[in-house]
């Protein structure tokens, strides 16, 4: 059964920007845009919202239910009620934070200013960079965003759009391998100047990516074999850097930064609640 959608979340909730989407263990949907966090039930009902100090670039929820928001040169950490619990800054090191991954004692912050990923422990001590050993000194991101996801074994899967690849790294920064190639015709390849822009993993380790110009969603198996593409006119043609999240049921949440709403792709057509 093919992926399809007839459902959107967060419509008319953001006025200028929608940059990040994440899910918690209960299926609640967290969206960052403008300068706020908005939390929706799995049915799409707005249940909570609060302001951030700076425009949020990305969002993640840790296993304790805390919400991490990446901003310029800092990360704000909120409790489940939206109260500010902590602010991380790393002056002189941390730039624009465009993706966050949290696993066990490790915190990974994608730094689009430096073009690599910063690895910290849970108390905010810097450990190492990921991607800085690239001989050209970082990921190639003409699109301005570094995005990644962490699999069940703790391996980071990173979109490197300017090289038309998805790369896999150990937390210490060792490159394990990559898949992907340029192709403007075959959907198995990555088209244009720089794709894929964003990336998420489902519970089976399949790699879900978003592309720009034209915007589309694709799914690859854990070995990088192309499985599926969704290319209809769901997304605004100008949409780029569409952030992704996947829930336990395999539904894919796509943040459209131009239409300012989150599209939900699933294998069974859902009715609008």
């Amino acid at each position: 059964m093919k992926l399809e959608t007839n459902r959107a979340i967060a419509s008319n909730q953001f006025s200028e920007a929608l940059r990040g989407v994440a899910l918690d263990g209960e299926g609640r949907v967290y969206a960052v845009g403008d300068s706020s966090v908005k939390v929706f039930s799995s049915e799409g009902e707005l249940v909570r919202q609060w302001k951030t100090a700076l425009p949020g670039q990305c969002v993640a929820v840790d296993d304790g239910g805390r919400i991490w928001v990446g901003e310029f040169e800092q990360v704000e950490i909120f409790d489940a009620e939206g109260r500010l619990a902590d602010t991380w800054k790393d002056a002189g090191r941390l730039g624009l934070v465009t993706s966050i991954g949290i696993r066990d004692d490790d915190v990974f912050l994608a730094d689009a200013t430096a073009r690599w990923i910063r690895h910290y422990n849970r108390v905010g001590e810097f450990l190492n960079n990921i991607g800085d050993r690239h001989r050209k000194g970082g990921f190639h991101i003409p699109n301005g965003v570094v995005d990644f996801a962490i699999d069940a074994d703790g391996i980071l899967h990173v979109a490197n759009p300017g090289m038309h690849r998805v790369e896999r790294y150990k937390p210490d920064g060792e490159l394990l391998g990559h898949f992907g190639r340029f192709d403007g015709r075959d959907p198995a390849g990555f088209p244009g100047c720089c794709n894929p822009t964003n990336l998420a993993l489902d519970s089976s380790g399949r790699v879900v990516v978003s592309e720009k110009a034209g915007p589309r969603i694709k799914v690859y198996d854990p070995d990088g074999e192309f499985l599926e593409v969704v290319t209809d006119d769901l997304f605004d043609p100008a949409a780029k850097n569409m952030d992704l999240a996947v829930d336990a049921g395999g539904r894919i949440y796509v943040a459209d930064p131009v239409a300012l709403e989150i599209r939900v792709l699933s294998r069974r057509a859902e009715t609008v609640p």
Binding site: P142, D183, G184, G189, G192, C193
Partner: peptide, 23 residues
């Protein structure tokens, strides 16, 4: 300029991929 490896203004990015992996 993004100084891209594959510039859509330089290459016809819809053309067939050559043996060098480029349009």
């Amino acid at each position: 300029c993004g100084r891209c490896y594959i510039c859509p203004a330089y290459y016809d990015i819809t053309s067939a991929v050559g043996p060098d992996g480029l349009p």
